[in-house]
């Protein structure tokens, strides 16, 4: 059994995806990683893909789907024979609610079926941009859940539905949460980054109007 992890983030090694991957793979020695961000190496990566029989593909939500380079990678994958190989996806988004990622999750299942692969499941997690600043402790139990799902993959099992549910949380905000959110300083993260770059005054600029 050969296991390959596809990091589907344009940010490559500096991505939140890589952090999730480190949680999911920490107990396994035989993990080979490929990065879709190495766009010039997609053809080379296909040799690694062809050689393996189990995949984990992790990507951030970009304009409601997978990033462009991840789609380019999947188009290359579609051209090789992936029959009987098994795959797990992780889709994570900047927005907190899993609802944003559910449509592309359906595509992940479709892609698996179209290639006659085995679908072991898809993890959906919101609020991943916080990883840029938050320590592992901030994610508390979620990190443990990802580790446990990593074990599922090692054993070739279907992902544990209860864990998927725990990671995803509520599909949408409750009315109560919406009320609370109104009073939270949610702009703070972006404003502090803008200020650090001396760009705060220009934050609302409309350069092409």
């Amino acid at each position: 059994m050969k296991y390959v992890v596809v990091n589907g983030s344009p940010r490559g090694k500096k991505s939140n995806s890589d952090r999730i991957i480190s949680w999911m793979t920490q107990n396994s020695q035989e993990v080979q990683k490929v990065y879709v961000a190495d766009i010039k190496k997609h053809d080379e990566a296909m040799k690694v893909i062809l050689d393996a029989d189990r995949y984990l593909m992790v990507f951030p939500l970009y304009t409601d789907a997978m990033p462009g380079m991840t789609k380019a990678f999947m188009e290359k994958m579609q051209q090789i024979n992936l029959e009987e190989k098994s795959i797990v996806f992780v889709v994570h988004s900047g927005f907190s609610e899993p609802i944003h990622s559910r449509t592309v999750e359906r595509y992940c299942a479709y892609f698996t079926k179209a290639n006659k692969m085995k679908y072991l499941g898809c993890v959906v997690m919101g609020g991943s941009e916080a990883m840029q600043v938050a320590p592992n402790g901030y994610f508390g139990k979620k990190k443990d859940y990802f580790e446990a799902l990593g074990q599922n993959i090692m054993k070739g099992e279907l992902l544990d539905q209860a864990l998927l549910q725990k990671i995803a949380g509520a599909e949408r905000f409750s009315k109560f949460k919406i009320l609370i959110l109104r009073f939270l300083p949610t702009d703070m993260y972006w404003n502090s980054r803008l200020k650090k770059n001396g760009a705060y005054e220009k934050r609302l600029d409309k350069p092409y109007s």
Partner: peptide
């Protein structure tokens, strides 16, 4: 392409 809008479109 592969069941989804093309990578050029997505780009």
């Amino acid at each position: 392409v592969a069941g989804f809008i093309s990578s050029s479109t997505k780009k």
